[in-house]
Amino acid sequence: MTTSATPARTTAQQLLAGLRIAAATVAGAVLLTASLPRKLEIHAPLAPQLVAYGVLVALLGAEIVGIVQRRDWNRARLPMLVLVLGASALSTWSLAPEYLLTSTDWSFGSSGWLGVVLLFGRPLPELATFLALNLAITVTRVLAVHGANLDILLGLTAGAVGTVGFPLACGIASTVVRRIADSAEQASARAAEIRTAEAVATGLFEARETRLARLDIGVEQLLRGLASGELDPEDPEVRRSCDLEAARMRRFLAEADDADDADDRLLYELRQGADVAERRNVLVEFERAGRWPTPPDDARPALADGILAGLTAARRRARVSVIGIGPRLSVSVTADGGNWAPPLRTHPSVSHIVVSTEDQTWIESTWTDEPRSPSSTTTPSPEGA
């Protein structure tokens, strides 16, 4: 059993939907209060009037169905408008001449509102053109029967005020309201973008503050130990710890670097870490292969940490590899310093493998799009490894 959720509409879409319902309501009220149902006996012949009335009612019913189903009659709009004009012509040209421009001429004022309904959301000139064509049907019939005398022209002018002026004014109001709704929607979207940007900036700031606090703890412990004499600067482990903290600090500074060539932040940060090793006269080879999606910001430190640790362990040579296969990104380092398994940062989607022998250390960190339990494996030095 499947369920489908109707997508939520924006404020502008809800407003326009309300306007569409209002236009259909007005058109329905005009049709229901038309004089035809009350004056059936004076229409002769009656059949053309009933056919024209039935066509307009059917078209209004189709519009109501479209409103309920949230459909627009894009492809059927032109045929429907032709049917409206055809029904108007059928009613006008089958009406007795003495009833033209009177209340009995029901189609003169009803068909224009159907045009407002069917052309809702379309450019205003299209509605004006339709109303002009609808008016031309009546004008042609009246002039053909009564001629162009002053009384007839005044009657046509007075009738045009209601049959053209009111529907056209409704179309103008709808256009203005639609523009206001669009402007309000754009302003709301811009405000949402600003709020999102502020939230992202706040999150980045807090994340950097957290990383800086962790960095301060490591550096402070080293400095206190060196100052108190608890740590010996000549001790290789102390030197490695100092190099590692220096690499971590450089990586942290690289995150805020806006260099133009730093398109891939991870690669850029790894190169910054390699620079620390090269300053110790370590030869660093950097290799990359494949393509990979951009890791999230919170996973990048865990990916880079293993490489920085391996570079720190290096004595004379290190090789860094970055390999991407589909959603999987693997970064590894092979260094000629051994017997060192440093603690590495963890992340739900990053796993670590550490293999350390007497002469060599290999660290691999792997990230995938799917979250996984963090793991860190240290393999003891096997014989002949």
Rank of each mutant, 00 (worst) to 15 (best):
V164A: 08
V164N: 01
F166S: 08
F166P: 01
P167T: 08
P167K: 09
P167D: 09
L168E: 06
L168W: 10
L168R: 04
A169C: 09
C170K: 10
C170H: 11
C170Y: 11
G171R: 09
G171Q: 09
I172C: 07
A173Y: 02
S174T: 07
S174V: 08
T175K: 04
T175I: 01
T175E: 09
V176G: 01
V176D: 01
V177L: 13
R178C: 05
R179M: 03
R179F: 02
R179G: 05
I180E: 04
I180Y: 04
I180R: 11
A181W: 00
D182N: 02
S183N: 01
S183P: 00
S183D: 05
A184G: 00
Q186T: 10
Q186K: 07
Q186W: 03
A187W: 00
S188R: 15
S188H: 13
S188I: 02
S188L: 12
S188A: 15
A189Y: 03
A191C: 04
A191V: 06
A192T: 10
I194A: 15
I194M: 13
I194E: 15
I194L: 15
T196K: 08
T196N: 09
A197Q: 14
E198G: 08
A199R: 10
V200L: 12
A201Q: 14
A201N: 12
A201I: 05
G203K: 11
G203T: 11
L204H: 12
L204I: 06
F205H: 14
F205R: 14
F205T: 14
E206Y: 09
E206S: 12
E206N: 12
A207H: 07
A207R: 11
A207N: 07
R208G: 10
E209F: 02
E209K: 07
E209T: 11
E209L: 13
E209A: 15
E209Q: 14
R211V: 04
R211T: 06
R211L: 10
L212T: 07
A213C: 02
R214L: 06
R214C: 03
R214F: 03
L215Y: 03
L215N: 05
D216I: 13
D216A: 15
D216W: 09
D216G: 11
